[in-house]
Design a binder for these strands. Structure first.
Lengths: 334, 334
DNA sequence: ATGAAAGCGCTAACAG
DNA sequence: CTGTTAGCGCTTTCAT
């Protein structure tokens, strides 16, 4: 390994000068700086990020801990984070907590011991313990799901989205919409349920019906089965996320229930496949990429030393994208 | 920050003993070890991974550089890597090269300067430069796509999969299968094309037709348009990956061409949505999760000091999963 | 079995 | 503007 000392020898200067030159500390004679750069180049020198991190007590990496890598929503968030991090000279360590509180805790610990410059987290639930991280002074911003602790966050107005989606179902003439949402301890799941209720109220319908399930295909499928096998089967569904929706669709198709004709569906998240399903799926699209860029912005800001002021919260809007799956007037597709 | 020195003071021993005790270096008196553990616990001590990394000249993190986070194939690989890494005490830094040679180079550099214990890479193309990494002695294993340099790898027999898929199309009675594959500089794209040709030969058909496109929805869509607008339009498609397939499907639907009736489709990768599209999509499923676990295994092995022997290569098989989209006998779905 | 002490490669005072 | 030097927190000889 070629180290700063070697470069110093090669360039005929001191290690301090090499460090300064390589870090662009203006106070270096241009001629010397050039000599140093050349020497470093010649030797194939690469600064040792570990040593630098130890000395500076911080690294140039951000940790992004997401709930589920296979959820397109989160990968879109990740893209947003990555793009702005990259642009500001940070790398991002992407961690997949996998909707598992234990894995999440482990990554939080890793973030702490690796002395990352900051972390962006979509908490498993509001009770996620970030106290250690905070007491270590690591800047944190949460996305998608809130924490009980006050902390910078970027959220989306899920409630409004769910409400609009439910109202839309009613407007299309569906009479018995049900809500399939996430686990009862997930704030987003609760928000979506709350929005569903509001939408029902808007349409003056008092019949409500919902089930909590895991945010996965299997969860959506099981919920659908449960609902359809009950004695007051719904005629339409407001679904909590795209993966669940896949399960709902699977079960509906299995039973020969024609979407957009016999049953209506609206789901959260505009997954890449949503427009190509037959019929195309109506969705509540969340601005995932922007969530990422905004979160990274907030974080960089804190890292840059914005101590003053309490927790900042940015709230983005979701948008209802009407396609065919929610139409009652759609011609049958099977 | 509470450091090892504080723990030493608290426990009334030397820092060396604390270090040894905390790292389980057997040569410590059990009683003392217990006292140290208790003290560390009481103080809320967390080892500083940076300092340890500097001293030991390596960290406990693995870098996994994938071509595209939004491709379900790679996220499945990531899961596999993560599971075995985790089980062995390593964290994994997931990096998204985004099919961009420059981003890939940047992450390779990051992996080097951060002194990761090893890297798993799906190279953008065979020319990807890993010489620096290798000369730094960082263990490397490549997945999915080969490198010209000899290096540990885990690949899948794409050719056989593509061949079987093409033959299957022919067997179903399709007469003019086309191949939509990835960029001409991607080995996987070439393999899939080669397999397609072999499949054609198996069926004694000489007419071949293929187009290279980006491994994305847009790529698939553009390729389909080009093919369909040509004067010898194909009646079926062997598609290079799931994201492209989404584009193909979109374009077919837009034109009112009924899949499984007017046209056949087989695509690489069993994306979660593939069975739920109407009609369900026939796929060549790659053992993505296993690719990840095997790659991590190879890597851990090297990290553990398996210097001897040249590059090891594990080759896995892909499996044709026949569903409806490739059937010619399927009843129309629209 | 335990402690003292020497660094790992780098940056940031502090001098000059 | 440049050089000398003291650590960052930890692991690991080398003594004891």
């Amino acid at each position: 390994m070629v180290k700063i000392k070697d470069v110093a020898a090669e360039a005929g200067v001191s290690v301090a000068t090499v460090s300064r030159a390589l870090n662009g500390h203006s106070t270096v004679d241009p001629a010397l700086a050039a000599r140093v750069t050349a020497a470093a180049e010649r030797l194939g020198y690469r600064p040792n990020a570990i040593a630098r991190g130890l000395r500076r007590q911080k690294t140039d990496v951000l940790a992004l801990i997401i709930s589920d890598v296979s959820n397109p929503f989160y990968t879109a968030v990740a893209r947003g984070v990555e793009d702005v991090a990259q642009a500001n000279g940070y790398s991002v360590l992407l961690c997949n907590a996998d909707e598992d509180a234990e894995k999440e805790a482990r990554y939080l610990r890793v973030a702490e011991v690796e002395q990352v410059a900051g972390v962006i987290l979509s908490p498993h639930n509001a009770a996620t313990d970030v106290s250690r991280l905070r007491s270590s002074g690591v800047p944190l911003v949460v996305v998608d799901r809130p924490l009980t602790d006050p902390v910078d966050s970027v959220m989306v107005r899920s409630i409004d989205g769910a409400r609009a989606a439910t109202r839309h179902l009613l407007d299309e003439g569906w009479l018995r919409p049900a809500c399939i949402t996430g686990p009862a301890d997930a704030a987003t799941a609760l928000d979506r349920l709350a929005g569903y209720r509001l939408g029902l109220a808007d349409g003056n319908v008092s019949r409500e019906q919902f089930v909590h399930a895991r945010f996965s295909q299997e969860g959506g499928l099981a919920a659908t089965t449960e609902l359809l096998d009950g004695d007051d089967a719904p005629d339409s569904f407001m679904v909590g996320n795209a993966q669940m929706a896949l399960g709902v669709i699977a079960e509906l198709k299995r039973r020969g229930i024609r979407i957009g004709y016999d049953a209506g569906i609206v789901t959260f998240d505009d997954a890449p496949w949503a427009p190509y399903i037959d019929p195309p799926i109506t969705v509540v699209a969340q601005p995932a990429y922007e969530i990422g860029t905004r979160a990274a912005g907030l974080l960089l800001d804190r890292i840059g030393g914005a101590e003053r002021g309490g927790a900042r919260e940015v709230v983005l809007s979701a948008e209802l994208l009407v396609r065919e799956s929610s139409r009652r007037t759609a011609s049958p597709h099977h």
